[in-house]
Design a binder for these strands. Structure first.
Lengths: 214, 214
DNA sequence: AATTTGACATACGCTCCGTATGTCATTATC
DNA sequence: GATAATGACATACGGAGCGTATGTCAAATT
């Protein structure tokens, strides 16, 4: 019978394990996910898991690497199709927030990941997202659009603000309204990066502006 | 012999459990901390733990509540002794970052806490710190120092940036240099909050300023 | 003085993880 | 082409940790 090639079978096994773990981690969380259970759901046993990933943490790393690669790809698409560098940067930040709204990303990447694997700034994958953002900021600085500031530092602060904003939004009882508030405040902060003459889009409001809700 | 009153004994037991757990959680982390071990180190057993705190998560909540109360107290001191509201706010942010540099706070409050107890923005205690910051921003807005922006949203973004900055600093190989970069970039972002006329402390080399008429 | 409450300790079972070992197919060697 | 060797898994075993159920003893209540 047409048995598939060896390498494909193995890759398929790894993919099945990662997929099963991703679902389990994303739904019940890392700590509550039983290795026996989700390997069985993939038609396998823990033997396969330990063979391919060493331990439970190794599998979490693989899952996060997969998710992170997807995130990076999505970010690149967003920033690539913007008209200006600055707009691309802003769009990328917005996309970052939107991704962080997804429960699977929140749970696996933002909560369990740091607890199990340590600080995300040390992960190779997370650094990819930061590096992408840093490069954009570097270009914006060379271009003269933003003030002289360390690109990586700014990128980390901005991503930190984005992630927290996302978690706040996702857990609020009215995500729509919260999102609007967060994005508005976010843009205000980002304008701190812009050089004075470049500031745009702020209505230059007189003394006491009261924004009326909705 | 002079036996102490009942209530004091009980409070002492609770305090011993919280202290032992705090040390264990802070050093080896929540997941690796054995209840048998650290209750024994307090001269007790898990029986006492379950009686007072329900389960391991309950004890973590108590530990975090204690740490958070300390953090809030420190923040209040910092913001109270500043000359201006804005300076108080900036100082508070800086203090926030400095506290987040402490390993115990990083591990328990910033990493394990969210993984075990869920999103920090839902904790009563964490909300206290945010609320304190929000109040300051509200006053700054009323005062006309900062632009019209939702105080809570800004507070959450700023705290998010602070926390991430802290983790980045703490895990960098050169914390001193990283800290300088982060604080500088942080101030730049914060200036986004300031209204145009109020901007201070930026050297502002006007290469090609294109000032739109106010 | 008798009873009740409550603060703990002890005992038990269960789940889960990691390792050590076994099995079978594929690949390499001759 | 038969045999040895490798590698991908499954099975078996032991240990640790958690939660609960139960026991005990002092203090508070009556």
């Amino acid at each position: 019978m047409g048995h598939k090639p060896r390498k494909e079978m193995i890759a398929e096994t790894r993919a099945k394990l990662v997929a099963a773990a991703r679902h389990a981690f994303g739904s019940v969380g890392y700590a509550e996910a039983s290795m026996d259970d989700f390997t069985a759901s993939a038609g396998l046993t823990r033997g396969a898991l330990y063979h391919h990933f060493g331990d439970k943490k190794g599998l979490l790393q693989a899952v996060i690497a997969e998710i992170d690669a997807e995130m990076l790809a999505r970010l690149k698409i967003v920033s690539a199709r913007a008209d200006t560098l600055w707009q691309g940067f802003v769009d990328e930040c917005t996309a970052y927030i939107e991704m962080a709204l997804e429960p699977e990303i929140q749970r696996i990447v933002l909560r369990d990941g740091p607890a199990v694997l340590g600080d995300p700034s040390q992960w190779p994958s997370q650094n990819e997202c930061i590096r992408s953002m840093s490069e954009n900021l570097q270009k914006l600085r060379d271009e003269g659009t933003i003030v002289a500031v360390d690109p990586e530092a700014a990128a980390r602060l901005v991503s930190g603000a984005s992630l927290h904003a996302a978690q706040w939004i996702a857990n609020s009882e009215n995500p729509e309204a919260t999102s609007k508030k967060a994005v508005k405040a976010f843009n205000v902060l980002l304008e701190g990066l812009l050089r004075q003459g470049r500031r745009i889009g702020r209505a230059q409001a007189p003394a006491e502006v009261n924004e009326s809700p909705a």
